[in-house]
Amino acid sequence: MRLEKCWFCSSTTYPGHGIQFVRNDAKIFRFCRSKCHKNFKMKRNPRKVKWTKAYRRVHGKDMTQDSTFEFERKRNRPERYDRNLAENVLKAIPKIDKIRVAREEKHHKNRMKGKKQKLHMEAVRELEQGISLVKAPSVLQKDPFLTLPKIKVGVSQQQQSEENHPMEE
């Protein structure tokens, strides 16, 4: 049983699923479902369609380089059967899968590291801008709890004199 990858979305296609299209230059395109096939017929680029694996990899949302991907590589040369080797492989598959999942979680955590702080800062900024919606201006004058401290700007005497005298033409 060979599990193929969908050409468009890179998801695993199990036997009995999907459609394959053979172009005249003998290149085979395998699709997991009609959604991917229709997008291919519409000449859409999987790197620009947001839900595909290609987009996620290009935009740094998924891992691109990892040693666990090497195990999942397609091998066209058949391996000579060895019982011990087969046993070891079957034992290793769940371990490798576990490692890959853990690394993906770690990658996601690193990607989302500054997200909470950023959201908090945005919320504070929004509150500062729309404070009049939360508290009425009259209340704010009495209780300046939520107002920002006013910044005092020093103005030199030369600038003040320029402001007083009108410009001469």
Binding site: G18, I19, Q20, F21, R23, N24
Partner: peptide, 10 residues
């Protein structure tokens, strides 16, 4: 026979 479908260009 495996349940998938195949089609060609022409």
């Amino acid at each position: 026979c495996d349940g998938s479908e195949v089609k060609f260009d022409d």
